[in-house]
Simulated assay, not measured.
Amino acid sequence: MTTVEQSKIYNTLLRTVSPQSFARLVDEMERVDLPVRYVLVEDGVAPKYIYFIESGLGSVVATSSDGESIEVGHVGREGASGMHIMLAVPATPGRTFMQVSGSGIRVPIGVFTDAVASDAETRDFFLRYVHTTVLQLAHSALANARYSMQERLARWILMCHDRLDGDDLPVTHEFLSLMLGVRRSGVTDQLHILEGRHAVRSTRGNLRVLSRQKLLDIAGGCYGVPEREYEKVLGLPLRMK
């Protein structure tokens, strides 16, 4: 990729990392399109690249030994795929793939691992990001165990809203059912309730956020702790205004 100013990057991690750390990566950065279903991390396969998403939305999906799947996390312009590399794990169970098409910057794994191995500041920065992803996973487990489907749905919509531009979220009922681990009909019923409260408007293949505040009120304590921690440890709000 032609050398680009750090301020022209739309991925929050690459915009926030120190200039010295950015310089270690910039020469090997490559901008790429990320279509729907594009695989960022394959189950049990060591990735060739770290993907820093600039637009679109990736799903981190866990799959059981008998084939049951559920989404356990999101990654968008606030983050990057393949961060198990930071924990000295070359390959991991589960997949990460694009649920909403977009674009991003990829960096070869070897370049990235050399950068974090040779500089403590770079390593510590990306480990702080790993901390936020672990916290997101923990609160997804908390939400699934202790909160209603309506509260969980509001949380997931807010998480999508954090990572996508504008108020129109190009997500399907099938995607939402995967995120929540419930039947599509259950998602449809809960969306009708949110529409009745004038929080969202759902059309085929699109969900429009009408009132973020109403979604926050519905989600309650189900949403917010990982988002505040992201801002605390990385220095920027997760949702870019």
Score class of each variant (00 low, 15 high):
82 G>Q: 05
204 R>M: 04
21 S>W: 06
144 N>Y: 11
66 D>W: 14
17 V>S: 01
109 I>Q: 11
234 L>W: 10
139 H>P: 08
86 M>P: 03
101 S>F: 06
8 K>L: 14
60 V>H: 00
61 V>C: 01
52 F>N: 00
58 G>Q: 06
142 L>G: 09
201 R>W: 07
177 S>K: 03
3 T>C: 06
135 L>I: 13
79 G>F: 06
177 S>G: 05
193 I>G: 08
68 E>A: 15
138 A>S: 14
169 L>V: 02
102 G>V: 06
168 D>W: 00
185 S>P: 05
156 W>S: 05
156 W>V: 11
123 R>F: 11
85 I>N: 05
121 E>Q: 13
201 R>G: 03
210 L>H: 08
113 T>I: 13
164 L>K: 01
37 R>C: 03
236 L>G: 05
133 T>R: 14
124 D>I: 02
120 A>M: 11
39 V>A: 10
62 A>D: 13
94 G>L: 04
237 P>T: 04
102 G>L: 03
82 G>R: 06
90 P>F: 09
144 N>F: 14
102 G>K: 10
42 E>C: 04
162 D>A: 08
97 F>S: 07
173 H>K: 11
140 S>Y: 11
36 V>H: 09
106 R>D: 05
30 E>C: 07
221 G>T: 15
37 R>Q: 11
100 V>Y: 02
127 L>N: 07
67 G>T: 10
112 F>G: 09
15 R>F: 12
11 N>D: 07
208 R>P: 00
114 D>A: 15
14 L>P: 04
27 D>F: 13
61 V>A: 01
32 V>T: 08
104 G>I: 10
180 L>Y: 08
9 I>T: 12
182 V>C: 12
129 Y>T: 04
30 E>W: 05
139 H>S: 00
80 A>Y: 01
66 D>I: 14
47 P>C: 09
4 V>I: 14
229 E>N: 12
86 M>Y: 00
17 V>L: 15
12 T>E: 12
138 A>V: 13
88 A>V: 05
241 K>M: 11
90 P>Q: 07
232 K>G: 04
57 L>Y: 07
109 I>E: 03
155 R>K: 15
159 M>H: 00
165 D>P: 12
166 G>V: 08
219 A>E: 07
167 D>Y: 03
234 L>G: 01
21 S>T: 15
58 G>I: 02
149 M>K: 07
62 A>M: 14
113 T>Q: 14
72 V>Y: 00
130 V>I: 10
160 C>T: 04
47 P>L: 07
181 G>L: 09
83 M>V: 13
202 S>D: 08
186 G>M: 13
74 H>K: 02
176 L>I: 05
139 H>Q: 13
190 Q>F: 00
90 P>G: 07
186 G>R: 10
91 A>S: 15
207 L>N: 03
119 D>Q: 08
74 H>L: 15
166 G>R: 04
230 Y>T: 01
194 L>P: 09
88 A>D: 13
30 E>D: 10
169 L>P: 06
54 E>A: 08
42 E>M: 04
127 L>K: 05
228 R>D: 15
47 P>Y: 09
15 R>P: 09
153 L>T: 03
192 H>N: 11
183 R>W: 03
54 E>L: 04
231 E>K: 12
45 V>H: 04
224 G>V: 07
200 V>A: 01
173 H>A: 09
18 S>A: 15
234 L>K: 05
149 M>G: 10
210 L>R: 11
41 V>W: 05
154 A>R: 04
57 L>S: 00
